[in-house]
Design a protein around this nucleic acid. Structure first.
Lengths: 228, 228, 228, 228
DNA sequence: TATGAATGAGCGTTCATTCAT
DNA sequence: CATGAATGAACGCTCATTCAT
């Protein structure tokens, strides 16, 4: 078909355009759910179309292909993540509190948006080939790291934080611990013999991560010297 | 599964038994590769059988079903991981060095066995339903955490480490940072705009993680107090 | 087909009528190309509309259905063939030269209009059902045979040609040899192990056909008597 | 699937093998009929499988793909054509009679095997791409032309035929006239306003072609000199 | 022990076409 | 006059699996 309908910036909000947009949105929403639950290959077009209460054909009408739809889904979750991160926006005047807010936000966001996690894992299974095809996805990149940079800078200025930290590393430290806990909760629960899905387990993990990150960034302490 | 041929304890190592074992092994090896690359749904019986140079039918003969085969694959990677971990076995007399060895091992193992990572992600996509069906998988659980416990205990005994740490948390801290770096390297590379696959990036990450963990566990430092 | 827009007798050549005619023409041209290349079933509406840089819908607006479009295409190629034949118009005063001109024209026309050949083959695959629905196609019929009749009559009058020939047979003899050479060039090339698409091969075939037809029509020779 | 079952030379004619061969044959037979009637694109897998009273799946089991099936069909009709031609085998001792036999055979074969004609036209629509993939198809090439060569040689030796003829040209002359008459009978009937399908029309055409070919090959006559 | 034959449901995608302004 | 939205059936093909020896 090729001539995929974009419909992104609908100006004349007539009845027809609104209905069309609704169809498009419902497909996108259903696809997000289905892909998150079953993965890319397991998420069949039929599962999506029936969940969206449309016909298979409309998916191709609006998104061109399964791959096109998946890319749109990825763009969607990245976009929403980015917006949520923007609304988080802690006050960098208090860098310790800000760091804590960020950690809490990350753990919370992944917990409440497991589809974000599974979709990202799915995309990694495919070696990031879909993200590579999207121009939008890259836009949302720097803001997250920039926030950490601002916080670290403020902490350093106040004499609280070490000056030798790369913001990207601290960002990754936080994200790893928050992401992994949600991403691998099923195998971990089986492996450790205890559920990681209870509110208590999550809260305990958040406390541990917060405490650990603050130990890492604080100014007046060194790690133990490695003897070997 | 019913009358699936186990062939596990091959006593009479006749020619036929050996050939049968070879077929079984080649299926298992091929399945590991295919499932790791394409996921569970994307990894078709035909891809596996042709990669193993056998017929589809043999997979059912030896493993009963696709699910049975996937479970066997999971058991295999857990088993190999467990054995590798056992050979790691650092000297707990020097807990700092031991911790460092463990971190290096984890980062290294995930790096060199990306199939372990993708298969675990695949299993988490399916909410751990296959691991649940395996009796073997649980066996390999505690050894890893026990090692951390021994190291921490030694560190505490030597006055180097904090006493208030739960081994499981430290274990998860190490594993998160090591695992996530490999697991999400594709989307992260796109997101951060720099490749995380270079040897330099990996080495730098290992250094940062080691440094951070040692800051977390050391005895004579507290985290920054949270004001809010 | 019902209320298909004909637009045939455009009187008021306003801007809109001209644009509409342009759209119609471009669809017809694209359809000729696509049907000639892919056949009727292989030539999809979408291939045609995208090649004509219009929308699928316009095809239905102007031609009512895929079948209606195909009929219009057939009428078009018949029409152009008829016009080209009219411009050929050799001088019957020299019947031998005229015959030669006709043969050259036929071989040349099929060569330079392979779409005519493939479209006719496609129509024959469908047992001529579309031509049957067209009133126009029949009009162009007799002129071609009539020309041969005139030439033969002139040849007989001049004592050069046999009098017992049916013009239709001579017409078919010429057309068979010219048409088949183009129509089956691909399988023939494979079958004979030599390309029939080179200019030399075409020229040699034209010479052979001309020579043969002239032997057939000449007055003072009989065929070899059939013994059996 | 790739591992397409060949089963061509079945040695152990057990019940299973025989049944399998029957399935394969019935698919091939049905495919020949369906492709001949609807063309390649119009001939759907479902039409073929239901006509063969099997399942779609078996077509892929035995022939790998639609294209593989079509190639097998082409090989089949070429093979049968070749065998029929071999059984024709006229006595070259009487070259005139032999030539007549060949012409009759050709006209007759195309008439009674219209699927040969439409399949060849279909293949030419696709520019011979399938024949090119078949190794078998080329084998049957030369025998047909060789027969004409033998006849012409005998005729020349007896002083009946011209010596300056290329066998390939005479072969093509015969085949053109025979093939075209069947191939284009539908459009021709509409074009000429008379049916070419009646036995009388066919017999008349056979007489004309025979007469014409014999005029072309006879020794003691020249074509009319071309003045222009 | 091992394998060829067969199965039917489902896959992603394209088809020609109509609806409703 | 022109077109975006929608439709459902069919497309070629692959799926995991069982049958029958």
């Amino acid at each position: 078909m090729a001539q995929t309908k974009q419909t992104k910036a609908v100006r004349g909000t007539g009845v027809r355009e609104a209905a069309a947009q609704a169809t498009r949105d419902s497909i996108l929403k259903a696809a997000t759910k289905v892909f998150a639950r079953y993965g890319y290959d397991g998420g069949s077009i039929e599962k999506i179309s029936s969940s969206a209460k449309t016909h298979d054909r409309m998916i191709y009408y609006y998104f061109g292909s399964k791959e096109g739809l998946f890319i749109a889904v990825l763009e969607g979750i990245y976009h929403r993540m980015d917006r949520a991160e923007a609304t988080c926006a802690p006050d960098t005047a208090d860098p310790v509190a800000a760091l804590k807010t960020v950690i809490r936000f990350k753990i919370d966001y992944y917990r409440r948006h497991p589809e974000f996690v599974t979709l990202l894992n799915t995309e990694n299974l495919h070696k990031g080939k879909h993200v590579a095809k999207s121009e939008k996805a890259v836009e949302y990149s720097s803001t997250a790291v920039d926030l950490i940079r601002d916080i670290l800078d403020a902490g350093v200025a106040q004499g609280l934080f070490r000056a030798d930290l790369r913001p990207r590393d601290v960002y990754l430290l936080i994200v790893s611990t928050a992401y992994f806990f949600t991403s691998n909760r099923h195998t971990l629960s089986a492996f450790l013999g205890e559920s990681l899905e209870t509110p208590e387990a999550v809260a305990a993990w958040e406390r541990f991560v917060t405490d650990s990150v603050l130990r890492v960034v604080r100014a007046d302490a060194a790690p133990l010297p490695v003897t070997a």
